[in-house]
């Protein structure tokens, strides 16, 4: 357990660094956001996206992102890509996986495979793609397909530092545990550089992989 927790923390730190790279390079004004849930707890891994109108074109030279499968977990669990970006799904486990998605943004399936799949998958629709493995129910992963180039992820303290030069600007916030349907993104306006606190209603995730225990019980084990 401890080992797994430290791995997760390491992955999130990596994501933060990715987000920061995007923002620092383009804009001058920074705005601090704190994302909290309905109980006032800070929410890490919330995704905030700055809307640009009209939406920027799909870039064609985007690097291929990687959604690895390590130790029967997607790694990272939340991957943010740009609309049109390719994602590779290498299998680092020594077992096979059957990665699928029924999300509207990108339904697909990679039937049982190991190692590197034949080719990466292109995510050309914006939205949230929930990833699962047909043979490992406990595996869940998210690919957030953004159409904006300004996408941020909250850190462990739920903080996000935005870079923007125009006011007001419309932003959306999303979290994998939000009670609203998964495709919904909560919109809000940023009108000044004042720090903002944004609340998202979340629900506690149902414990994964409890079927087995019931089966065992059912089988009299």
């Amino acid at each position: 357990m401890l080992e797994r927790a430290s791995q997760l923390i390491a992955k999130r730190r990596f994501l933060l660094i990715v987000g920061a790279l995007f923002s620092v390079s383009a804009f001058g004004n920074s705005i601090n956001l704190v994302i909290k849930d309905q109980h006032g707890q800070v929410l890490p891994n919330a995704v905030v996206e700055i809307k640009h109108l009209p939406s920027s074109k799909v870039q064609s030279n985007l690097p291929t992102a990687v959604m690895d499968q390590v130790d029967k977990q997607f790694s990272p669990q939340l991957l943010i890509v740009r609309q049109g970006q390719y994602v590779n799904f290498p299998n680092s486990d020594d077992i096979r996986h059957h990665v699928y998605s029924f999300s509207k943004a990108k339904p697909f399936q990679l039937k049982l495979y190991s190692g590197q799949p034949e080719e990466p998958i292109k995510f050309d629709n914006q939205g949230v793609v929930v990833l699962g493995c047909n043979i490992h129910d406990s595996m869940v992963g998210y690919i957030y397909v953004a159409n904006s180039d300004q996408v941020y992820t909250s850190d462990e303290q739920g903080r996000i530092e935005l870079q923007t030069d125009t006011f007001p600007v419309q932003a959306s916030v999303w979290h994998s545990l939000q009670t609203a349907p998964l495709d919904n993104k909560k919109l809000f306006d940023i009108e000044s550089t004042n720090p903002l606190s944004i609340t998202i209603n979340t629900s506690t995730p149902a414990p994964r992989n409890t079927f087995g225990s019931k089966f065992r019980e059912g089988n009299g084990q």
Partner: peptide, 9 residues
């Protein structure tokens, strides 16, 4: 029982 894909849909 929930139908999960893998999130409960």
């Amino acid at each position: 029982l929930p139908v999960k894909t893998p999130r409960t849909i």
